[in-house]
Amino acid sequence: MGILSGNPQNEPMHYGEVFATWTYLFAEKGMISMYQTFVNHTGDDDLKKLLEEAIQGAKGETQQIEELLKANGVALPPSPPERPKANLEDIPAGARITDPEISGLLSMNVAKGLVACSTIMGQSIREDIGLLFGQFHVNKAQFGVKVLKLNKEKGWLVPPPLHMDTPNK
């Protein structure tokens, strides 16, 4: 048997897997903090529920990645502090992040997360890491549909110009 056969947990992580998972974890921890801040800024209950769902999903992912990295002797990135709850009315109007802005950033982060998960899946030679990020990818895709539906329902979706006319050839 070669070094890369048998139980994947007994295989060493290669440098790319370490860097990608560590970086993903670092970004995910930052997004938890950012989404906690967004909860304080949003006035829309539906958006607030999606943000809470995103926070819980990210916390679940960070826990799994931390376990993976610890088991492989990799130091964990720092975690930002939990954001305190704030009253929306206490945030000056000019300093507030608007609901459409929050939803747009949430959409962008879902898209970036899908790309990151796909990248890690593609570069992983350990099956357990590829499968872990495959599950994260599926969860993000399902969550992304919820965000898209909310954007459409609320009128927050700003589509690019639609290409309706094609030149005659």
Rank of each mutant, 00 (worst) to 15 (best):
L4G: 00
G6T: 01
P8N: 04
P8M: 03
N10T: 11
M13P: 07
F19M: 08
Y24M: 06
Y24L: 03
K29V: 00
G30A: 02
G30L: 01
G30V: 02
S33T: 11
M34F: 13
M34Q: 13
Y35C: 02
Y35I: 00
Q36C: 01
F38V: 01
F38E: 06
G43S: 12
D44K: 07
D44S: 13
D44P: 05
D44T: 12
D45R: 12
D46M: 04
L47C: 02
L47K: 06
L50Q: 11
L50H: 04
L50E: 12
L50T: 05
L51M: 05
L51T: 14
E52G: 08
E53D: 15
A54E: 14
Q56S: 12
K59Q: 15
K59S: 02
G60C: 02
E61K: 09
T62K: 01
T62L: 01
T62W: 05
Q64S: 11
E67C: 00
L68P: 07
N72L: 02
N72D: 13
G73L: 13
V74G: 11
A75M: 13
P77K: 04
P77H: 06
P77G: 04
P78Q: 15
P78W: 13
S79R: 12
S79G: 02
P80S: 03
P80R: 01
E82R: 09
E82V: 12
R83K: 14
R83V: 15
N87Q: 12
N87V: 13
I91W: 11
P92Q: 08
P92D: 14
A93P: 05
A93S: 12
G94N: 14
R96Y: 06
I97G: 00
T98R: 09
D99L: 05
P100I: 10
I102M: 03
S103V: 11
L105E: 06
L106A: 06
S107Y: 02
M108C: 02
M108E: 13
V110L: 07
A111N: 09
A111K: 14
G113P: 07
A116P: 02
A116T: 15
A116D: 13
I120R: 09
I120G: 06
I120H: 11
Q123K: 05
Q123I: 11
E127V: 08
E127N: 04
D128T: 09
G130Q: 09
G130S: 14
L131T: 03
L131P: 00
G134R: 00
G134V: 00
V138Q: 14
N139L: 01
F143D: 10
K146V: 01
L148D: 11
L148A: 07
K149W: 00
P160I: 08
P161A: 07
M164H: 15
D165F: 09
